[in-house]
Write a protein that binds this DNA or RNA. Sequence first.
DNA 1: TTCTTATGACGCAAATATACGTCAAATATT
DNA 2: AATATTTGACGTATATTTGCGTCATAAGAA
Lengths: 110, 110
Amino acid sequence: MVQSKTELFEQELIEKAALFKALAHPARLQILQFLAATQSCITGDISDELPLGRTTVNQHLKELKAAGLVTGHIEGVKTKYCLDMDNVKRLREELGGFIDDLHIDNYCCE
Amino acid sequence: MVQSKTELFEQELIEKAALFKALAHPARLQILQFLAATQSCITGDISDELPLGRTTVNQHLKELKAAGLVTGHIEGVKTKYCLDMDNVKRLREELGGFIDDLHIDNYCCE
DNA sequence: TTCTTATGACGCAAATATACGTCAAATATT
DNA sequence: AATATTTGACGTATATTTGCGTCATAAGAA
């Protein structure tokens, strides 16, 4: 492509697409599940749970943080990661809302 | 990367990630909105509505079809695209379900 | 038939994502 | 102090996505 064109779309669509993109990799989904399952916030060796190296997992964590779904607290040498519950809830509403707004109930294709 | 590793994850996660990925671009979100808004199924010149060329839009439509969210019926020279309502509804449940399954209501981070 | 239109397949180039090795800094352990 | 852990930043290689031009095909119009 000559240039990226994502910025030519409506801001709202861009943001929604970015949210979906944050969830568009199985590693990131599994990280979210793992953080949710282990109630207490967990250190970085989430990589033991995934078929990926540590730095790769770190990279995915970084993206989840950028999307606002996860926060990281430094605790001595280690770092504890947590779900950002408020944003995860907001996420759920936004994603459901997008589909609801399509009003597929009335949709009739012929 | 030496090789793609997505296939090393659980099948369920891979499929959910693929669904999210289908929604991870503003053009595809807008295409879905457009198809939903124009009740009658629409020919390919959806590209008039987007800041993208025809072949690019075609490419995005192809991805939406691969994800099962859209179907295309040939009608003479033109092609009519439709939302696949059943799959869109299923999508809504699966995506909401993923977040529900995190049980964030009980989540307590300290 | 000839011309026009609409489409999708194909391939290219640029941008971005994915995966990881290495390294320096910070904290703990000895 | 010397050593060991844990982490994130950085760079690199490969893979995938994105955007588009070109072309051949198929159907309708002239």
